[in-house]
């Protein structure tokens, strides 16, 4: 589904990613872990198409297409969803309005009929249950005045409604208490199907108790220095990142 080859990225002349190679197949969950500043967030933003990142070398293929040639909204319509670490507030734009506009933009792109208001609401109500949110939540402005936990749940709700092919979740667990963490994890697990893939970016192993990954990669100073299965996450939890960094230097 997603194939990253030798990806080099710099920001304002500073090299951040230094040759990332990663293959993600449909049905897989990959966790990318690493210390702060290792380039985890840069990786997901480059995949989502944020401006301001210079790809200096390498290639990314997504469903057979050159991903880097697409604009952010085209990637979203092709099924890439980014769960933001810091979801932005958009005053005056209600959640429900955004969701409807986004869903219909994606459906139109796929050549599907736009959902009418009744079908749309039915779908949203079903997904609201999944993230344990009340309906009045939908009529508030996007993320405005939301607590950290509410914002993250809102991201999962949007993901559930938009049903992406590839979900990139950037530190979705940060700032969540254990109940909220379970809700978020349920939301992600509900999305796991043989057609979809998930890339989780996280600093801590905690989230991986609830969303069990097929692969774990450790990103250090812009390179994936170690890959393994879920046991690698436990080892990192126990021993910290120091030993991987040391191994990488060796």
């Amino acid at each position: 589904m997603l194939s990253i080859k030798n990806l080099h990225v710099s920001v304002e002349g500073k090299s951040i990613l230094k040759g990332i190679n990663l293959e993600v197949k449909a049905g897989e969950v990959h966790a990318i872990m690493g210390p702060n500043g290792s380039g985890k967030s840069t990786l997901v933003h480059v995949l989502a198409g944020r401006e301001g990142y210079d790809v200096t070398a390498g290639a990314v293929t997504y469903l057979g297409k050159d991903l880097l040639a697409l604009r952010a909204e085209e990637r979203a319509r092709e099924g890439i969803f980014l769960g933001f670490q810091y979801p932005v507030e958009i005053p005056g734009v209600s959640n429900i309005y955004l969701l409807k506009a986004a869903l219909n933009a994606i459906r139109k792109h796929r050549g599907e009929e736009e959902l009418d208001a009744i079908d749309f609401l039915a779908r949203v109500r079903e997904k609201l249950k999944l993230v344990e949110m009340k309906e009045d939540f939908m009529y508030r402005s996007v993320n405005e005045g939301f607590s950290g936990g509410e914002r993250k749940r809102n991201e999962i709700l949007q993901m559930a409604v938009l049903e992406p092919r590839l979900a990139l979740l950037d530190e979705t667990d940060s700032g969540l208490d254990i109940d909220a963490l379970k809700i978020v994890a349920n939301g992600v697990n509900a999305l796991r199907t043989p057609e979809r893939a998930v890339v989780l970016v996280t600093h801590y192993q905690r989230l991986l108790n609830y969303i069990v990954p097929d692969y774990v990669h450790v990103l250090v100073q812009g390179r994936i220095v170690k890959s393994g299965d879920k046991s690698l996450a436990h080892e990192l939890e126990r021993r910290g990142y120091g030993w991987v960094e040391a191994e990488a230097r060796a």
Partner: peptide, 16 residues
């Protein structure tokens, strides 16, 4: 960027 990431065109994002 947030809105475009959700699939809206640049013009629709601005308008929204």
């Amino acid at each position: 960027y947030y809105l475009r990431q959700r699939g809206l065109s640049a013009e629709d994002a601005v308008s929204m």
